[in-house]
Nucleic acid binder design. Structure first.
Lengths: 337, 337
DNA sequence: CTGAAAGCGCTTACAG
DNA sequence: CTGAAAGCGCTTACAG
């Protein structure tokens, strides 16, 4: 079924059918109804490619790239964005990137190709690290772009991007400081991975700098790699506690990992919040219902997601550029610390 | 930049550029390299709409509709599918449906329109209930379709679809029977919603039938609505336990809700697995790390997702139809029961 | 190995 | 209010 067939069946020209299709006002009422009836009866849907080809870049595609959608944290942000876009006239094209190990430059080039192929008007990028992308490559991005929770080149006017996120370094520092102020000296640190090059890296820098400022020696043996995985974190924490009975507190860079750690503490016969202070980061909804509930720093992730997509649409529609938003984290004192 | 510009710059005809673009072998090596260089230099990307228009239905689009992506259970299945498709030559087009309240027929029509607009070769549908869709409408689906965890019209050859899922009725029956065999008579039942028309409805039927067969009176007051939400389930469970101190066991239709319930049991000063038996459903990774860990029936959701997408691609490539797969649930005995 | 030309299914001035 | 015609940027027989 194409527009020509509908036109023939209705006994009109194809322009008229097109006008009906696009809700143009200048069509005779009866003609319109006749055409609509035939469209309905034959379940006709216009060919999108043909429309877009003609309309050229008049599509309204927004892209979203998620690095690490297996992290529930990002998954939730994606849902917020997808729901928001669903209520607009934009179409969201989703690109889940799981190639963490790939060369950054190569990765950036495939990002460019994604934008070009889909003729995106704008893009939201979740996660990742584009700290060291050459400026000329960066500025080849042919559409509006908003990075959420991404590590970016230190801002200079030469780099053209917008972003929404938190101050990861400062948050990490504050989190660790909370334990230090309570007098802890032997503190386990849960990170995703030594090779983590995303925001976790900044948080970790905050941890170690806080230790330094409080004259507590940083001990590599107290590092627990959790890979954002319950089981893995559970096993690593169990082993760390077994080998280092001095440890009196745990500083975890993500709630997902804290849940595995909490169980490890329990299985060592200890109680978090009493025998061991566990302080976490992210503020997932579940922490409040864990036993004991987990003290954490809430990243306003829904707010970041929402600001991000709203900002992107504003950038697209106004032509403005270069807008940076920093959100505050919120301390949430519960039972584990 | 269009193909014509590249051709001009390279001093060749557009057909040659097209041949280079599509990796045709019959191009002179030097010509090819010259053209590639220019394409590279100018960051040229062919216009997808134009290609697709010409190729007509030679795109390889697969669609996925997720009803209720806010349920982590489905979110994870989607990720499995998205990752799998990413490794093929198919493009995945995602459609998150949050209009639970909409008229089924209307919903089905917009499903048809999605398929037609995107010219989908195949579709994976997660969740929902299409039990009562008229046959003639159903058979208007112009592509291969695989339903995962969906309620469907009782199978007859007249309905053309494939599916992967579990036997929800039987699983629900078995789950409740486990509590009944342990001698429980006053059993709280956690469901998402009285109006739930998805698979939860079938599970619930299993629950009540089991009660009947064991001559235990069904008590509507023991029903707890949880809306797949920790907080909501927590509050409802707390209230139910407060009002009905007779209750000795809880049968929950989903792990996400069990986590809220677990905390409610704890806050009543009770211990799940000792004072109250809590048995759950789904088998999310987290249950093993809760305190106490949650006894549950594992739905092989990654397996269902994987079988589903593999099946769909097979259907597309072989032309076969009408394939139903039922997976077994696996009982996982942990501490809460 | 290469190029000119037709045509994919739409939209939109333009002329009536 | 309506229709014939041009053209969006590609691909692919066809002819050389």
């Amino acid at each position: 079924m194409k527009i020509k067939d509908i036109a023939q069946l209705a006994g009109v020209g194809i322009s008229t059918v097109s006008r009906v299709l696009n809700n143009y006002p200048d069509v005779n009422k009866e003609t319109r109804e006749r055409v609509l009836k035939i469209i309905e009866d034959h379940n006709y849907t216009p060919n999108d490619s043909a429309r877009l080809l003609k309309l050229n870049d008049n599509n309204d595609n927004i892209g979203i790239v998620v690095e690490g959608v297996y992290n529930e944290f990002f998954a939730e942000m994606e849902r917020v964005i997808s729901t928001f876009v669903g209520k607009t006239n934009y179409t969201l094209i989703i690109n889940h990137d799981n190639k963490h190990d790939e060369d950054k430059i190569k990765k950036f080039k495939s990002l460019l190709s994604f934008i070009n192929t889909k003729k995106l008007k704008g893009l939201v990028y979740l996660g990742g690290n584009y700290e060291s992308i050459p400026q000329d490559l960066f500025n080849q991005i042919p559409c509006k772009i908003v990075f959420l929770n991404t590590i970016l080149p230190s801002k200079s006017t030469a780099f053209n991007y917008s972003s929404v996120g938190i101050d990861n370094y400062l948050s990490g520092y504050t989190q660790m400081e909370y334990l230090l102020k309570k007098g802890h000296k032997y503190i386990g640190i849960i990170i995703s991975d030594f090779k983590d090059s995303g925001v976790g890296k900044l948080r970790f820098k905050g941890y170690t700098d806080a230790l330094k400022n409080y004259n507590i020696e940083f001990c590599e043996d107290y590092i627990i790699e959790g890979h954002y995985n319950y089981e893995y974190t559970y096993n690593q924490t169990l082993e760390c506690l077994r080998n280092h009975s001095k440890i009196t507190a745990i500083c975890s860079s993500s709630d997902a990992m804290s849940i595995g750690a909490l169980r490890a503490v329990h299985d060592r016969g200890l109680t978090a919040g009493k025998d061991i202070d566990l302080i976490s980061f992210d503020g997932m909804d579940i922490v409040k219902f864990c036993i004991p509930s987990i003290t954490t720093f809430i990243q306003p992730r829904r707010e970041i997601a929402l600001s991000g997509i709203e900002l992107l649409i504003e950038l697209i529609e106004t032509g403005i550029d270069n807008y940076q938003i920093i959100k505050d984290v919120v301390f949430c004192k519960l039972e584990s610390c």
